[in-house]
Design a protein around this nucleic acid. Structure first.
Lengths: 232, 232
DNA sequence: GCCTAATGCGAATATTTGTTCGCATTCAAT
DNA sequence: ATTGAATGCGAACAAATATTCGCATTAGGC
């Protein structure tokens, strides 16, 4: 950022600029997110834009940062609740939370993320993977299964990638075949298969609380209590 | 395409234009793949370019088409060999083949695919999903497991997405933690978990041959002719 | 070898885009 | 109210880009 906003009005202008950038990218695509259009959407002049952002790429970076902060906080919060859950429930709840978050404001963030290659979104994913790997490593240490988990970093890498990109693509092509709930369920199943934890009915002395898996899972944004395929 | 190339020289020019486009996108990114630069790389003039492609987007489409044709053929070939394999081996071999294909020529195609959002790559993925869903549907009908597979389209949707995007991202961020072989193994495991086939030692009357799961899987791009899973 | 259609060219044009700069306006402290 | 700094503006400029067009070159049947 070229200059720091000291007064209130400039701070709010910077804010609305970042938001306008997100909207422009989400609604008209990254190539259409030009300086003039962003300024217009934010209701300021291009001159003002360049007073706080030296290059328009800095604006993109600011948008990414905004997305990242919320995402990391959300994941951290979910990880806090991990110790008392099964992996399957953890993944389910995490996915509901992430999906809802990325979907707010007409899927604004989700649509921005489509341009991950040009927005250095990979750095964010790296962070998320690290976060998840350590958390799951600790969890698996406390809940050892008969067959130990091999290659945890690889599995987390694959899972995080798969989850995020599948969600991102889902808004590009919602696929009437696959509904959101089913996809989440699918990932929960995948994670459980990849990271075998002790079976629920007989935790090996582990402090795993028996959770009476509610039929609709945790309340998502607006998920109807549809009939859910009961596993096990 | 604006005009059809009738003579040999124009056909080869169109060809080199498409290739140059792929190289430009792969090496310098989609925004840098401008008409002038593409023409220069192809060794022709911009005028000639616009004689066969009305808009530069048509060039992008041609590149995508070229990638698609190879990919579909490859998948079809792998599907042909599916009936005699386990799901796990099928996924393993398919992934090796797809990965090698996308990696040829300094990962040209792989790098192009990073811009899937702006290249309508989703249509390709839709096709692939359809192809896979029907093939796996037939397979599972012939190799019924005790617990029938639910929601096959969803699972294929998730798997195809996950595989492709994970491969694509792998070239953006190879992650020293996860090597290619491990990732493929991981996906094979995931697929096997999601699509339960009869256990190998006792196929329920199914013509599934017992395959001696080789520890390193099948040979990759430039591997020696190692012990390969024999088909029938 | 001739002739016509196909092909290839690249300077020229109209837009679009990123970025700057001098000047007007507003704030906050005195 | 005064004043200096912060803020906001948008016309203006340079560079890049997509696309066109009239003209030169070439191929291939006769």
């Amino acid at each position: 950022m070229r200059k720091k906003p000291r007064q209130g009005r400039s701070r709010s202008m910077v804010d609305s600029l970042v938001e306008a950038t997100a909207i422009c990218i989400a609604e008209d695509g990254l190539p259409a997110a030009t300086a003039a259009r962003i300024a217009e959407r934010a209701g300021v002049s291009v001159g003002s834009l360049y007073q706080y952002f030296a290059r328009k790429e800095d604006l993109y970076a600011a948008v990414l940062e905004r997305i990242t902060v919320g995402l990391k906080a959300l994941v951290a919060a979910e990880i806090e609740r991990l110790p008392n859950k099964s992996i399957e429930d953890f993944v389910r709840d995490l996915l509901h939370a992430v999906w809802s978050y990325l979907e707010t404001d007409r899927q604004r963030y989700l649509r921005v993320t489509r341009y991950w290659a040009q927005l250095e979104f990979v750095a964010v994913m790296n962070d998320l993977e690290r976060q998840m790997t350590t958390a799951l490593g600790v969890y698996l240490m406390h809940h050892p299964a008969r067959r130990p988990v091999q290659d945890l970093p690889t599995k987390v890498y694959v899972l995080v990638n798969s989850v995020l990109f599948t969600i991102v693509r889902y808004i590009s092509e919602p696929s009437p075949q696959a509904r959101r709930e089913q996809i989440i369920e699918c990932f929960a199943e995948m994670a459980a298969a990849l990271l075998p934890a002790p079976t629920k009915r007989a935790g090996a002395g582990a402090p795993l609380k028996r959770l009476p898996r509610s039929p609709a899972g945790r309340s998502g944004t607006s998920a109807p209590p549809a009939a859910r395929s009961v596993s096990r």
